[in-house]
C-alpha cells in the first residue's frame, strides 16, 4: 500500500498510509496529540488513528489547521472522518453506560477509527452508516 512520495505539499505523486495505535497518544495532552497528528498529516500521510479524539480536540484540530492555511505552502486544510462502532446511536441507556465505562477504562473510545489526511491528498471522505469512501486527489 505504501508508495513513493514527495516532500512538498500540493504536488503529490504518492502517499503512504500510517496507522497510529491509541497507546501512542493516550498519555499525551491535547497539544501533544494534535502536534503528533499534524506531523504525520503534513508529511503527506493518510493517518488511520485507533480510537478518536475528544470533541474539543477535534475542534481544536480544525481551528489549528485553519490557522495554518496561507502559512504552510500548499496546505489547504484536512479531511477528517470518524467511524464509530455504534455510529451516532449509542442505543439503550444500559449500552451507553457500559460504553462510557469501557471508554473511561481505556482512556478513549477504542471502538472508533479516525481517518485524517491533508486536503491536497484526500479530496473527500464520503460517509454513511454502512460505508466510508475515500476519494483521493490525482
Amino acid at each position: 500500500m505504501i508508495k513513493k512520495k514527495r516532500g512538498k505539499l500540493g504536488k503529490i505523486k504518492g502517499f503512504s498510509i500510517q496507522f497510529l495505535p491509541f497507546s501512542e497518544i493516550r498519555d499525551l495532552d491535547s497539544t501533544g496529540r494534535i502536534k503528533k497528528i499534524l506531523n504525520i498529516v503534513l508529511g503527506n500521510n493518510i493517518l488511520i488513528l485507533q480510537g478518536r479524539l475528544k470533541a474539543e480536540e477535534e475542534a481544536r484540530l480544525i481551528g489549528d489547521t485553519m490557522a495554518m492555511i496561507g502559512h504552510v505552502k500548499g496546505f489547504k486544510g484536512i479531511e477528517l472522518a470518524v467511524i464509530s462502532g455504534n455510529g451516532n446511536n449509542p442505543g439503550s441507556f444500559f449500552n451507553k453506560m457500559r460504553q462510557n465505562l469501557a471508554n473511561s477504562l481505556a482512556k478513549g473510545d477504542l471502538g472508533a477509527v479516525t481517518i485524517i489526511g491533508a486536503a491536497t491528498i484526500v479530496k473527500d471522505i464520503k460517509k454513511n452508516p454502512k460505508k466510508i469512501e475515500l476519494l483521493l486527489n490525482r
Binding site: 470533541a55 477528517l80 454513511n128 452508516p129
Partner: peptide, 17 residues
C-alpha cells in the same frame, strides 16, 4: 446534503460536552 459530515458531528460533540 449528506448529514454524516464530520464537521456536523464535531460541532454537536462540542456542544454536548
Amino acid at each position: 446534503e449528506n448529514p454524516y459530515n464530520q464537521v456536523n458531528i464535531t460541532i454537536i460533540g462540542n456542544l454536548v460536552a
